[in-house]
Design a protein around this nucleic acid. Structure first.
Length: 409
RNA sequence: GUCCCCAUCGUCUAGCCUGGCCUAGGACGCCGGCCUUUCAAGCCGGCAACACGGGUUCGAAUCCCGUUGGGGACACCA
């Protein structure tokens, strides 16, 4: 059997969010398990919404969670000629046609159809016009099949049937010459020889639109797998108002990437009663059979618990490594600069039993460096156990390169 | 509205495919206890679910149909 190839294809219109990471994670796990290839592709064909900062944030986020890719990052904006060429191929084959309907007209007709209780899809009026030369400001539409059905054997959802009679003639090339999402994905997935398209199930209904394009272009159709969505506590799609959704925000809040990844892999997948998985275990034990079909509510408390587990049970020097940037961010850059790894590891050992996040550690340690910190009385009491407080004082005192040092009251 | 998907404790889930082992298991959270000079951690215990209605069957959380509920998609966004 040939090698499997999967991809994660975010659009750079914001930060890398929790849902995106989980999608990437399942792709990555599958690739590693099957000794396949994991590809990163940036879908930036929407000029107005894509930003460089966002691409940078996605790359950073991926690195933080440790999802390394084997190919890419490819950028769709660098592949414009490829999409145009394939679009022209469809035009030449009579599988696409020019459409001169204006966006505003289409919008109006959609609304009208909706008001009448009809399907809001394109009425196909330019299909019959058969322009021989491209009119100015024309978009190119794909001729969707009008009869028959498309059966998708989804890795997660199983067999799904779609009637072609409900299919729409999608625009594949905008009037500005840029390809639209549904077309560029097909071309890229085909050319990058993606064998398994694993994405969020918000793309489920895109599948029957994309399959005919693969076929019209003469490409083999990949297998599909649609992951259930992640919901907020109110069962609505996870968004900012449910709390932090950017992965990097979790880094700043003192979460270990291993804990986040562990939490995310268990959100929608299970292996018996097991809760804690090393990366190696996830890779070994993963199976599509045990991926949930239904949406899952994101539970920050369980994440927090897992994070505490990882802090308690992780290698102290490994935890210490992650602690350094947070110490620096808290204003201890000079203090931390010359400190030894052993010193940091010792620090972690002292406080790891009760810390749920790395920022807990930072907050507790600050006063010992003579820094004031906004810590309420209860938080202070939780931390100041008879054993750890003196030990911590001694630890910091032994830190010779630290010039001034005052004990907390 | 149309199409598609889904449905076990508050939440994540095991079990479902291959009906009886399920008086439905685990985890988070919550409550109580032990330990402890406090708080955590740890240990022990408790509360808590098969959406509803019909079938099929000796027997259904498990199979079939319907209802209800939730989610998603219907753009020159991705």
């Amino acid at each position: 059997m040939s090698q499997i190839r999967v991809r994660f294809a975010p659009s750079p219109t914001g930060y890398l969010h929790i849902g995106g990471v989980r999608t990437a994670l399942f792709n990555w796990i599958f690739a590693r398990q099957q000794k396949g290839v994991f590809i990163l592709r940036i879908e930036d064909t929407d000029q107005s919404r894509s930003t460089e900062e966002s691409i940078e944030a996605i790359l950073q986020g991926m690195k933080w969670v440790g999802l390394d890719w084997d190919e890419g990052p490819y950028r769709q904006t660098e592949r414009m000629e490829i999409y145009r060429r394939h679009a022209m191929k469809l035009l030449a084959q009579g599988r696409a046609y020019w459409c001169v309907c204006k966006a505003e007209e289409l919008e109006a007709r959609r609304k009208e159809a909706e008001a009448k209780g009809l399907s809001p899809r394109y009425d196909g009026r330019c299909r019959a016009r058969e322009f021989t030369a491209p009119p100015p400001d024309a978009a190119l539409r794909f001729k969707a099949p009008e009869e028959g059905e498309i059966i998708v054997d989804d890795l997660i959802k199983g067999r799904i049937t779609f009637e072609n009679s409900a299919a729409d003639d999608l625009i594949i090339l905008r009037s500005n010459g840029y390809p639209t999402y549904n077309f560029s994905v097909v071309v890229d997935d085909a050319l990058m020889q993606i064998t398994h398209v694993v994405r969020g199930d918000d793309h489920l209904t895109n599948t029957p639109r994309q399959i005919p394009m693969f076929e019209a272009l003469g490409f083999p159709v990949p297998r599909f797998g649609h992951l259930p969505m992640i919901l907020g506590s109110d069962r609505a799609r996870l968004s900012k108002r449910h709390g932090a959704t950017s992965v990097l925000a979790y880094k700043e809040m003192g979460y270990l990437s291993d804990a986040l990844v562990n939490y995310l892999v268990r959100l929608g997948w299970s292996h018996g009663d097991q809760e804690v998985f090393s990366r190696q275990e996830m890779i070994e034990k993963f199976s599509w059979d045990h991926v949930q079909k239904s949406a899952a509510v994101f539970n920050p408390e369980k994440l927090l618990w897992l994070n505490a587990e990882y802090i308690k049970n992780g290698e102290p020097d490994r935890v210490a490594k992650d602690l350094v940037p947070l110490l620096e961010a808290a204003g201890l850059k000079d203090e931390v600069r010359d400190v030894s790894d052993q010193w940091l590891a010792r620090l972690v050992v002292l406080v790891k039993e009760r810390a749920k996040t790395l920022t807990d550690m930072v907050m507790w340690v600050m006063p010992y460096f003579g820094r004031s910190v906004a810590m309420d009385e209860e938080a202070a009491r939780k931390f100041l156990s008879p054993a750890t407080a003196p030990a911590l004082e001694k630890l910091v005192a032994r830190f010779e390169t630290f010039p001034t040092f005052s004990k907390p009251e």
